[in-house]
């Protein structure tokens, strides 16, 4: 104990500080990263914004008491006022309530797509990167084929197949087009880890491939993937809005920011507020996830410190 006090160079250190120093020493990359993160205002702000959006998606009633689907036509196209904070749309619906309720589909699609694409990428990428050889070549070529189809372009083509497009269909298409980039990332990350000594020693101890991949390789190659996945949530939300905007995404009567912007585009001269509010909230949401990804990258990548 006294040795440690000497190292810190502070004789008067009380006991609790010494404990903290001990903790620091055993801290993993993730522990280090966490401590660096909560001190960063960018991370705290983006995390708070994301939290608000999540709560908005789960309990929209907390933010507004109005029903987004009760639309008296007599109140159509009002500008923002004390009664209707964001004004009303062409059918007289309260625009603030609709903007709040719009968070649900965006957040849902963002999380579903990222989770599934990440799962495909983790399974495919670790098999491809770990085993190499013919399996790797096969997976890499299939990935290349899908990678060659640009997201929005492919999205338009595939989504046109569905007569009824809900959250499930849009998510499915975005998963199908979104996994290749992530798989490549996992693969290269796995390759860079698999030659390390601790993997060799695990193998020498007789660990199975499954154990080596899940307990040794994946946890150590996860950092860049987590960063990319966080940013992907934002990118997916923007893509959903873009597809809905092009009329190949969600369909009315769904409440979605992309649809709101799509409906607003005919009236941007007379009622610009119809474009502004969903556009702003959408941008803030996408912004939060990208910001969070940025903060995570700074914390997880020791090279940048």
């Amino acid at each position: 104990m006294s040795d440690r006090v000497a190292i810190t160079g502070d004789i008067e250190l009380p006991d609790e500080h010494v404990d903290e120093a001990t903790e620091d020493r055993v801290a993993s990359l993730w522990g280090d990263a966490w401590r660096a993160l909560i001190r960063k205002p960018i991370f705290v702000i983006s995390a708070l914004l994301i939290l608000i959006m999540m709560v908005m998606a789960v309990f929209p009633g907390l933010f507004t008491s109005k029903d987004p689907r009760s639309c008296p036509l007599s109140e159509a196209l009002q500008t923002p006022s004390a009664e209707h904070w964001f004004g009303t749309d062409v059918q007289g619906c309260d625009y603030y309530a609709r903007t709040i309720y719009g968070a649900r589909v965006s957040i849902t699609i963002g999380l579903i797509v990222t989770t599934f694409a990440l799962t495909i990428a983790l399974v495919g990428g670790s098999i491809s990167g770990y085993y190499g050889g013919i399996v790797d070549t096969l997976i890499a070529r299939v990935t290349d084929m899908w990678f060659a189809i640009p997201t929005i372009l492919g999205g338009i083509v595939i989504l046109a197949l569905f007569q009824n497009r809900g959250v499930a269909q849009v998510s499915l298409v975005l998963i199908v087009l979104g996994w290749p980039t992530m798989l490549r990332l996992v693969r290269s990350s796995v390759i860079s880890v698999k030659e390390t000594e601790y993997v060799d020693s695990a193998r020498a101890l007789g660990a199975t491939d499954f154990r080596i991949i899940t307990r040794h390789i994946l946890p150590n190659s996860l950092a860049p993937v987590i960063v990319y996945a966080t940013i992907t949530v934002g990118v997916v939300i923007a893509a959903e809005a873009a597809l809905s905007f092009l009329n190949v995404g969600l369909q009315l009567p769904a409440i979605s920011w992309g649809l709101m912007i799509s409906t607003a585009q005919n009236r941007i001269l007379t009622s610009p507020h119809l474009l502004f509010f969903p556009g702003a909230v959408l941008s803030i949401t996408v912004f939060s996830f990208i910001l969070m990804g940025d903060a995570l990258r700074d914390a997880l990548d020791p090279k940048l410190r």
Binding site: A238, I261, Q265, I268, G279, L282, S283, V286, I290, L291
Partner: peptide, 12 residues
Amino acid sequence: VVIAIPIFVLGF
């Protein structure tokens, strides 16, 4: 900021 604003919002 530019990265975060979706292209169709930016366009309008």
